[in-house]
Design a protein around this nucleic acid. Structure first.
Lengths: 108, 108
DNA sequence: CATATATTTCCATTATTCTGGAAATGTCGA
DNA sequence: TCGACATTTCCAGAATAATGGAAATATATG
């Protein structure tokens, strides 16, 4: 992952509303949620919701799946993992950088 | 960690220059680097450098240690870990969310 | 087809952030 | 004390982002 792609993702998450949307989707799992439900839970004007969802989508953090009149959005976990990997890349020269340090686990 | 604190950190990292600064510090380890060296490597005007460093500092991602005329900055690894923890919190309902999923390792 | 609902696009306003020159502050060594 | 250097603060202009009303688009249902 390149620096600019990473900073675009981080900037996308660096906003209360978008981070709240993203967390909801991360916690919702693979099925995701449709835009209406997200907007209702966060009490967002449709245009505002759409703006933020488009932003998250543009940087690749979430995916969309149309279903009739609805559009379901879900977190792209691989994008999140790439991003976390980028942040911890070459972290602290091989020493454990802190108690409870984050490490990449082996694929299951 | 609260949502707003997390989004402040993410926003701080969501800028090419600041992310570049932060990565340099993450890779520099506990000793850190002084502002001049950072600025020289990234070819930043002093005021610009100071602005970005202040931003990272304000949200708690980096710490400073004055040493004579120099100020050494270093990444605060515990802040990074809290942030990563926040992002993966309640992730994907207990299933492994992706190949190479990030997990929190036991303290050393 | 007509109507209701979901979502997006268009647009303008407001708010925030970024940038860097210049001046200020603080520290060192002679 | 003086001059050189490191860093920050002050400031203002330029650029970018956020918000939401209203209209457009798309799809489902009667």
């Amino acid at each position: 992952m390149e620096l600019t792609a990473a900073s675009d993702c981080l900037a996308a998450l660096g906003h209360d509303t978008r981070l709240a949307i993203y967390r909801m989707l991360v916690q919702a799992g693979a099925d995701g949620m449709n835009a209406g439900v997200i907007g209702a839970r966060l009490a967002l004007a449709p245009a505002t919701l759409s703006f933020h969802i488009a932003h998250l989508s543009r940087v690749g953090l979430i995916a969309s799946r149309p279903d009739g009149r609805f559009i379901y959005y879900s977190a792209d976990y691989s994008a999140m993992n790439e991003l976390l990997g980028f942040l911890t890349d070459n972290c602290c020269q091989g020493e454990s950088c802190a108690p409870g340090a984050v490490k990449v686990a082996a694929p299951k």
